[in-house]
Design a binder for these strands. Structure first.
Lengths: 258, 258
DNA sequence: GTATTATTTAGTAAAAACTACTAAATAAAT
DNA sequence: ATTTATTTAGTAGTTTTTACTAAATAATAC
């Protein structure tokens, strides 16, 4: 639970703990059973939805700040997390629309125009992917709501966040061909059909079911187990798991998936 | 010419014109006759070499700040310019080594620890490519020297700039397969041998001379002219030029070169 | 003019990769 | 034992890539 004192301290003294003029925004993609969603939040003092974001502590690395932010919103750790682009445009937030009275009303603190939060920021964009069924959402102290939205029916977003989502999705889909993905999104042991559905959903297009797994297996990323899973009146699929070493080696050095 | 008054104004009042805590660094690659070089500068108050960089005016976009920076250093406009990564690590610059007396000595201004220049910054990395024979180098006001270095024999760089160069080169080489390149680096009309040499040098590897141009021609990026160039006692090569429309369309939407 | 020369560049054969499709295998249910 | 639905190995056809060959050709030397 966030207390009023904490909110006040953040607003009035946050610039001592965080680096001013720099923020980060996270496009957190959520996958589950062939659905792709995006996490959005609603700020107390802003009408529409936007990407979750935050500030960078003076003591932490950029990627650590992003990981902390994702963890705070979703409750989940250790996700696939990548920088995609940094945004800086004097018009990306409209400070002329800043309404001091409204901020006082909703936050209970008088935030002046000189406050560190009411100033131009450069924002570093990260994206992340998680299994949304395992998450426990938690808005940040400046927000009232936090929810998953289907990627195909997002509301219009505030600031330059529509562009951010477009860029994040684009980068994520390119990365899918160059980095292995699946940890944290699939059970420890999974079937080829499951990982196939994951890739199809993330890429937003069909992949031939019989050709798709060949490359992954040829690259040694998947280990075929001697177990099967019973899921109906038909042949039981084999279970697979990731070859952890190869997986992390591929994460570091990249692969080519097609 | 930069006056002492300008230096003082930049140091003491720069934070009003520029966004504090954010900087940018540019890996400016220079190509000419099968040589690949990198532009480095030497700060007045720092011993080693580093990437040229600068700050972002409150009125300009990120990419405009980078373009301005590249133009100031090289005198050349309108180059291929791409963001590659943003760097943020509390240890990327070592402020404990900051030597107030040395700064006074070399700059003639007393720069205190509270000064905006002596504080943690997040740096946005851009890379750019130009023909180094067409450039007129110009150090920035905080530097004494500015020169091209062969990419294979760079001096060790200050701060995290070795990592930046590694990342910039890596990104540039990936981009070569996804964006057309050559404008500003080749004459208006050029031979297949010339563009082949450009790609080989930038990629740092051999490309089969007889297969290389096929994809570029098939994509319609190159227009074969009816002119030839006389350059020796042998068959004269045809001249080509870029299909401007296709070139810019490919810059926007990307291509796949292999 | 003609032969020589070095390089450009069209063409092709072989190899590799990719795609679309077929059918065998198989485990649960009846 | 049979039916059923799905997994997954296999393959044939296509496309792309790669490696190589040789024809074309313009400047030079004679």
């Amino acid at each position: 639970m966030v207390t009023q004192a904490q909110v006040e301290d953040f607003i009035l003294n946050g610039h001592k703990e965080y680096i001013p003029h720099v923020s980060l925004d996270c496009a957190i993609f959520g996958y589950h059973e062939q659905q792709l969603k995006l996490l959005l939040i609603r700020h107390k003092a802003v009408d529409g939805w936007c990407l979750p974001g935050g500030y960078i502590k003076r003591t932490e690395k950029l990627v650590e700040a992003a990981a902390r932010n994702v963890k705070e919103r979703t409750g989940v750790d250790n996700l696939f997390l990548q920088q995609f682009k940094t945004f800086g445009d004097p018009n990306r937030a409209k400070f002329e629309e800043f309404d001091e009275d409204r901020w006082y009303e909703v936050l209970g603190v008088r935030v002046g125009r000189g406050n560190w939060l009411i100033d131009q920021t450069i924002s570093v964009g990260f994206y992340s992917i998680t299994d949304f069924s395992r998450t426990v959402l938690q808005p940040d102290m400046m927000s009232i709501e936090c929810d998953w939205f289907d990627i195909d029916s997002l509301p219009p977003l505030e600031f330059d966040h529509n562009e951010m989502v477009r860029e994040a999705l684009h980068t994520m889909r390119i990365h899918l061909y160059h980095y292995p993905i699946g940890y944290n999104m699939l059970p420890e042991k999974f079937t080829l059909t499951e990982i196939h559905a994951l890739y199809e959903t993330l890429l937003g297009k069909k992949l031939d079911i019989s050709n798709f797994p060949k490359k992954l297996i040829a690259l040694g990323l998947l280990i075929k187990l001697d177990e099967k899973r019973s899921i109906g009146p038909h042949r039981s699929p084999h279970l697979y798991q990731f070859n952890k070493e190869r997986y992390h080696e591929a994460l570091r050095n990249g692969v080519v998936l097609s």
